[in-house]
Amino acid sequence: MKTCLVVDDSRVIRKVARRILEDLGFEIAEASDGAEALAWCRAAMPDAVLLDWNMPVMSGIDFLKHLRAEVGGDRPRVVFCTVENDVAHINEALACGADEFIMKPFDGEIVASKFFQAGLT
C-alpha cells in the first residue's frame, strides 16, 4: 500500500484529506508543520506528501527545500495544497521540486485528478 504524509496545521483539513486519500488507497500519516513532516520523512520516506504552504514552525516550501536535499528525498511525489493560488507561488513550488499543486478549496475529485497527474494513481 502506498503511503501519503498529510501536512497541514488544520486538523479539519487533515481529517478531510485523510478520508479522501484513504479512499484512493493510501495509508496516511499526519504532520502539523514542516518540521514534524521532515522528522517523519527522515524516519521513513512516504510515497506522497500532501503539503500546505503556510504553517507555524516550518512552512511547506521550506520543508520541500529540505526534503529534496535529503538522501532519498527526491523520491516522494509532493502535491501542494494551499490557498496561495497565484502563478508566482505555483512557479516557486515547481522550481523547488513540487510535482503537483492543488488550490484550496478542494474536493475528492480534484485530489484524485491531481494525484493522477502526479503519477501517484
Binding site: V87, L94, F106, S113
Partner: peptide, 20 residues
C-alpha cells in the same frame, strides 16, 4: 473556474497556458 482548471490539467500546463 479554479475548479475546472484543476480537473485533468497538470499544473505545469496551467501555468504555461493560463493567466489568473
Amino acid at each position: 473556474t479554479q475548479f475546472e482548471v484543476q480537473r485533468g490539467l497538470h499544473v505545469r500546463r496551467l501555468v504555461q497556458h493560463f493567466e489568473k
